[in-house]
């Protein structure tokens, strides 16, 4: 009986499914399928690449990024949404002029390739090696000029953290919270917490303004001011709160919850114990 049921269901479902597929040739479902294929192939490529890379001299890998290599990776992983020439499609914007910085940020933080449509592109574990990211960035940058990969001298965290803190409070805290703990924006979007973000990604986020974040170009914030901000964020990362455990740096809400649950909880526990002893 169970068998008959399943066969009937399969029969019923197959025509409608094919009809659906036919009707929407360029439906996102097709895109998803393509992405899956792309991911599987890059996964294979990655395995190959990383094993050969370890055999190679490291200098060769970190050497000049290859735009040609990037073009291939792009065609396999990104073209479904962004178009073969990165000219943009109905499901992904054009990448002309976004620059190497944008690609490095989006792919390096795992936001791209986009997994699913949501309020905003979520961070995922990065799917490409640094070298592959550099290749992709090189190719996109070769299409049109845009913000480049930041100079490493701004990423050392040796700027002025006090200036950085002040700039951060004025420019970033309204979205990211003063302690960089993140905050809510409208319609389910949010500014993420900034703990543990690499210096390069912080810099790139500022110059490219991903999604709902504004762009801070060099006229708004000079490169050395950006370096100060990075210095401050790194200071917060490496120096635990002098007051002890920071409860997520979420401010009075977490403090209030803590005192009700653990403070008053502990005290009430003791009162119950004392009263029980007395009886």
């Amino acid at each position: 009986m169970g068998i008959r049921k399943t066969t009937r269901m399969a029969k019923n479902s197959s025509p409608s499914a094919t009809a659906g597929r036919k009707a929407n040739r360029r439906h996102p479902l097709a895109t998803v399928a393509l992405i899956v294929i792309g991911l599987v192939s890059t996964g294979g490529a990655y395995a190959l690449f990383s094993s050969t890379a370890s055999a190679d001299t490291p200098a060769a890998v970190s050497g000049a990024a290859s735009a040609a290599q990037g073009e291939k990776l792009f065609a396999a992983n990104c073209a479904t949404c962004h178009g073969m020439n990165a000219q943009g499609t109905s499901v992904g914007p054009s990448l002309y002029g976004v620059g190497a910085a944008s690609v490095s940020f989006q792919v390096g933080t795992g936001r791209m390739p986009l997994a699913q449509q949501g309020p905003q592109a979520e961070q995922k574990p990065a799917q490409f090696t640094d070298a592959q990211v550099a290749d992709l960035a090189a190719w996109v940058a070769s299409l049109a000029p845009g913000p480049g990969i930041p100079d490493s001298k701004y990423l050392q965290g040796n700027g002025n953290s006090a200036t950085g803190a002040e700039l951060f409070r004025v420019n970033c805290a309204m979205c990211h919270n003063v302690a960089g703990a993140g905050g809510a924006l409208t319609e389910g979007k949010f500014a993420p917490a900034l703990t543990g973000v690499t210096a390069a990604h912080i810099y790139e986020a500022m110059v490219t303004g991903p999604q709902n974040m504004p762009v801070f170009n060099d006229a708004n914030l000079t490169p050395s001011q950006k370096s100060d901000i990075i210095t401050y964020l790194k200071y917060l990362d490496t120096n635990p709160s002098p007051g002890g455990i920071d409860l997520g740096n979420l401010g009075p809400v977490s403090e209030g919850l803590f005192i009700w649950i653990f403070g008053l909880g502990a005290v009430v526990g003791v009162t119950i114990w004392i009263a029980a002893k007395a009886n």
Binding site: R169, C175, A184, G251, V253
Partner: peptide
């Protein structure tokens, strides 16, 4: 972490005590 008061910036997650 909050820094000195200055009327222009407002942090996300600004709340009063409970």
């Amino acid at each position: 972490v909050y820094g000195p008061y200055d009327p222009s910036p407002v942090s996300a997650g600004t709340q009063p005590d409970w």
